[in-house]
Amino acid sequence: MAADSATPLLCARALRRLYGRIVALEEVSFELWPGEILAIVGESGSGKSTLLHVLAGQLEPDEGEVLFDLPGRGLQDIYRLCEGERRTLARTDWGFVHQHAVDGLRMHVSAGANVVERQMALGERHYGRLRRLALDWLQHVELDPARIDDAPVIFSGGMRQRLQIARNLVTLPRLVFLDEPTSGLDVSVQARLLDLLRRLTRELGLAVVLVTHDLAVARLLAHRTMVMQLGRVVESGLTDQLLDDPVHPYTQLLVSSVLPP
């Protein structure tokens, strides 16, 4: 974590988002620093996914702003960029790993093409180079390079998540959004995937916003954790402190019900 960095990478200011009369987000503000991993925890319906989509430029907030540190331009409200700029940003400097791999992969396109699609979108027109890059990234995420021409539709859940990660990291983004990346996987597969995420985030100095309902995942990966309830942030702090010594009654409840004492 580069805590001495002068500006935050991402900055949420007083975010509010309604669904009809349901308040999905209210008064959410925080800063994310380069290389920092932030976990968002909270029970089902507390607004975690809504927040993630608002931060990732996919869902405009009703109020508040999301600022991102653009190279050479400083903090910019992402919803004031034109759509083309925002989409380019989203597929170069950001990654988004979906809870369900089918939302984040082209299931009937080979693993290799899934990995290098972003590079092709950026104008890479040399097949040999794309191929080498795909092979490299399959290795980085510990997928068998021999599977490069297989489509993820025949991959296991864990393999699909690895492929999603490779597909997102291929442009070396500075910020990655992860929505419940390990849920629905077997415990042993989860553990290996978490190890992989921990290694890659360190090696690449990635900043991450991680949504999870699993406090153990937050404990393992996140520098800082934010607890949400009914669309609001009720408590936030360094992960270990927050989990070992929760202050807010809701956090105490979460910790006591999930983490055996």
């Binding site: 082209r106 396109v109 080979s110 093409a113 290098v116 699609e117 092709m120 979108a121 027109r125």
Partner: peptide, 15 residues
Amino acid sequence: EYGLMHVKLYEDIAH
């Protein structure tokens, strides 16, 4: 945004 068109050509060459 035409990266997708090259996905198809990539698939051809790969297969």
